[in-house]
Amino acid sequence: MSRIQEIFKHKNSNVLNVYCTAGFPKLDSTLEVMRALQDNGADLIELGMPYSDPLADGPVIQASGSIALKNGMTIANLFKQLKDFRKEINVPVILMGYMNPVLQYGFERFCADAAAVGVDGLILPDLPQYEFETEYGDIIKKYGLDFIFLVTPETSEERVRQIDELSSGFLYAVSSSSTTGNEKDFGLVEKYLQRLQNLKLKNPVLVGFGIKDKQTFASAAKHANGAIIGSAYIKALNENSNVKVATKEFLHAVLG
């Protein structure tokens, strides 16, 4: 059983996954941020690998990625930073990024290095289902990594079921068809999540996009196994350069 599956075995509601950008706010903040997230109650960490053209992210996360790139963050640097992280961090860690830097690094080499340092899963939003099935899925499985697909309110039931079959770890439900950080009416989101809940899927479901505080976390977690927070946490890091304090205050406000 993977570290991600282990989490859901012990906790099937209010699971909190927090996104952070590798190399942000400073090149060497990656581990400090991850430690702070673990210490303050994050159940999983989604670690973003910065990219010049992050189509599925909103402006806040893109800006943090631009800073990380300026700081000198690369995939090779990231694996160096993560070399010994399992000595101090035991929550599951998922790498999130885009195909181009991963292809350039070498897809198999990337999976091998990720698994070797102790990463648990991958989110690559622009890796399509067809290419996953024909080319990349086997490589990901070979290294024992979970692969998390996204579903949206526009995804048909039939397709949700296909994607559920292909995914492992959990399903990432986009709470509205929007890039991260957008605010939308949460009533519609709840209906959509109820719909997903009724499908009785194989994987747990975490809700992402637009979750920023105690109230939105609670609404999202009501009809799913938990939620993912991204832009709101990056904003908190933008507003307070003390990573420990910013993380503590932010997560206490969400979970408190």
Binding site: L55, A56, M99, P125, D126, L127, P128, Y130, E131, F149, L150, V151, T152, E154, T155, S156, R159, I163, V174, S177, S178, T179
Partner: peptide, 19 residues
């Protein structure tokens, strides 16, 4: 039918654009 010219093409898009 998947949009490939030789080894180039395809549809590398996030799920939000799929429909």
């Amino acid at each position: 039918d998947k949009g490939y010219y030789g080894k180039f093409g395809g549809a590398y898009i996030p799920e939000m654009l799929h429909r």
